[in-house]
Amino acid sequence: MAQSELVAEVARLRQGDPEALGPLLARYQNRLYRYLLRLVRDRATAEDLFQQTWLRVVEKVHQYDALRSFEAWLFALAHNLAIDYLRRYRPESLDELQSPDEPRNVQFPSAGPDALARALEQERAGLVIEALDELPAVYRELLSLRFEEEMKLAEIAEVLDMPLSTVKTRLKRGLERLRERLANIAPREMGQ
């Protein structure tokens, strides 16, 4: 769906046309579901939040500012619902939100780069997912938005409602943490 078609579908949805739902769902269903699944790590919860997000879209589409990116608006709705859920039922998963930006002296294990290279060379996608799943929610979300959803940093800042500089800092920390985890997991998984 081209950008002009997206604008037209959103406009139709604002007018209450139910036929506009199909194309919008088709366009975003996989990406939105993947993002929620990465964030909450539980299929049933992701499905529930996916459903809630689309109901919220229908409810709030009149408040959507057509000058903004629909994608950023949609993911921001999903983000808010997911964060509310995590805050209510799994507050421990948000602990890192309190002070995730404190500088850390990142020390990769001595075998880090080699183990990392081996894991990546062998395209062990499962290892990457496992390492990703072990990260705090704040980093999982950022890495998913940047690498899976391929959002620009400005869009991510809009979705997460945070300054661009914070997005950059957290993205860097997230990558460092992921690399640390992956380097730790890889030898274990490969029986080394």
Partner: peptide, 11 residues
């Protein structure tokens, strides 16, 4: 390599 692996994670 790490960034590439992240982009290739199955959907």
């Amino acid at each position: 390599s790490l960034a590439g692996a992240l982009r290739r994670v199955p959907t």
